[in-house]
């Protein structure tokens, strides 16, 4: 590792490490800041399945918003049920709302039936407060495919990350 920094003063090495740290933390801050603004734990999601085709295909990037206390019928929401691994992007087909609570039934545009079988055991409706991560507002096609590629090929991710760190450490202005 020492030979990597050949010809650099200790101060220079530290400055370089600082720059890398700054890059990582500012990316993290941007993500968390967006989460605060949108009130959604995951404000940008990548579509993983084809159940909303032709509206959304695998790899499309969705921008979420979670500030409205009630979602509308016809809205496309992202929901995350406890004990189920992957969040799902589907359309709201029914809403039963009171002052305290909103119950929702969802369905994928490309699926023949509603999501009853995707919910938890004996669960008939989604809960707006508990299970909705956000409503889809904006859309960019295909860009998210990069992340699908990375997460399905873990070694590529590791190589890429290591490469990035090495490159940014070696870079000199």
């Amino acid at each position: 590792m020492v030979s990597l920094f050949n010809g650099m003063s200790p101060r220079g090495v530290l400055a370089q490490v600082m720059t890398v740290g700054l890059m990582v933390t500012s990316a993290f801050m941007f993500w968390k800041g967006l989460a605060v603004v949108t009130n959604s734990p995951s404000p940008i999601v990548v579509v993983l399945s084809g159940s909303m085709e032709p509206a959304f295909q695998r790899g499309d990037l969705l921008f979420l918003w979670n500030r409205s206390p009630r979602v509308n019928v016809g809205d496309i929401v992202v929901y995350d049920i406890k004990d189920k691994a992957i969040p799902i992007v589907h359309r709201v087909m029914r809403s039963h709302a009171s002052d305290r609570k909103q119950l929702l039934l969802t369905k994928g545009d490309n699926n023949p039936v509603d999501d009853l079988d995707l919910y938890g055991y004996k669960q008939n409706y989604l809960d707006r407060e508990e299970e909705i991560i956000g409503t889809v507002r904006g859309y960019l096609p295909k860009i998210g495919y990069v992340t699908i590629f990375l997460s399905e090929n873990a070694y590529v991710k590791k190589i890429l990350l290591a490469g990035l760190v090495v490159v940014s450490l070696l870079q000199r202005e």
Binding site: P54, A55, N72, V73, G74, R94, S95, H96, S98
Partner: peptide
């Protein structure tokens, strides 16, 4: 890219604060 057309019905519930809205038909 696509148009999603849907027929909805909105109706009241047992209490005044309850409101319901359902989709009866839709078309891509």
């Amino acid at each position: 890219k696509q148009l999603f057309v849907y027929l909805t019905a909105e109706y009241d519930g047992d209490r005044p604060d309850i409101s319901n809205k359902v989709i009866f038909w839709d078309q891509i």
